[in-house]
Every structure is written in C-alpha cells, then in structure tokens.
Amino acid sequence: MILDISIGFFVSLSFAILFNAPKRSLIPIIILGIGAVLIKKYMLLYNFSLEFSTFIAAFFIGLVSIYFSHKQNIPILVYAISSSIVLVPTVNAYKAMMGFIQISTHQINNQELIIQSLHYGLRTWLVFGAITIGIVLPTQFLKKYRFKIL
C-alpha cells in the first residue's frame, strides 16, 4: 500500500515536471496519479480484467480533473496526461514486440509464440484505448459543467 502510494507519487510528479506543468497544478496531479494506481491495483485484486480496471481508473482521472480544471482554470489535458502515465501497459507492449522479433528472425513454426505475441499486442492496444476513451468520455457528457474556456 505504501509502496503503491509512493510509486503513484513519484511517477506522476516526475512526468508532470517533464511536461513542464504549472506549479500550482502539481498537487492535483499527484492526487490523481495515486488514486489511479490504487483503483487499478484493487480492481485487479478483485478479479476484474486489466482492460476494465484501467478504464475505470482513467475514467476517475477524467472525472476528477474536470473538477480541478474548473477550480484552477487550467485545461483538463494538463492533469489528465501527466497522471495517466501510470496506467500505460509497458511490459505487455514489450512482450508483444519481443515475440514479433523472435517470429521474424527465426522460430517460424512456433505457433504458441505467434499466438502469445498477438495476445500481448492486442492487449496493449485495448489498454491504450481504455486509457484514452476513459479520459475523453467524461469531458463529452459533462459539457455543461466544463471549464469556462475549454
């Protein structure tokens, strides 16, 4: 639990600084990042699928960042992007890529490998889709309550 909180803290803080986010938006970004990590972890513990739990975590980010952007007058994008980095499925993407490299170099007849790397590749794209749709969806149907300029 403490490890998860510190992971969320460091990842979201560091990517906010990499993207040069304004100083007053750092604390909301950290809150969002920690929340997303915890939601994803506990939904995975209760046997939800990876895609669905990522979607819910991204939805949480999108929903809460609307509140913060209304309060602080900063575009939603600033909060959403820096804090949603924690959800990116890097290991799945890496495994898919490794599988494809192995198929292309040798091991042509290894069917298990082909299916496995396809599985990881599809999973990566689905999780990416879940992140983006989860962030974009709240800004669509809550148009009325949106940030004044956005």
Binding site: F15, L77, I85, V88, T90, V91, Y94, M98, T132
Partner: peptide, 25 residues
C-alpha cells in the same frame, strides 16, 4: 524485461494519442 520496458517510458507519445482521440470525438 521490466527494466528495459520501463526505462523507455519517457518517450511514450501519450500527448499525441490522447489529443488524437480528443479531436476525433
């Protein structure tokens, strides 16, 4: 594999993807 996959993370084009879906919708 964990080290390699996570050390490359700062290059991931998250802004481009999220902006793309945002614009398309």
């Amino acid at each position: 594999h964990i080290a390699i996959a996570s050390s490359i993370l700062f290059l991931v084009p998250s802004v481009a993807f999220i902006n793309s879906v945002n614009d398309l919708t």
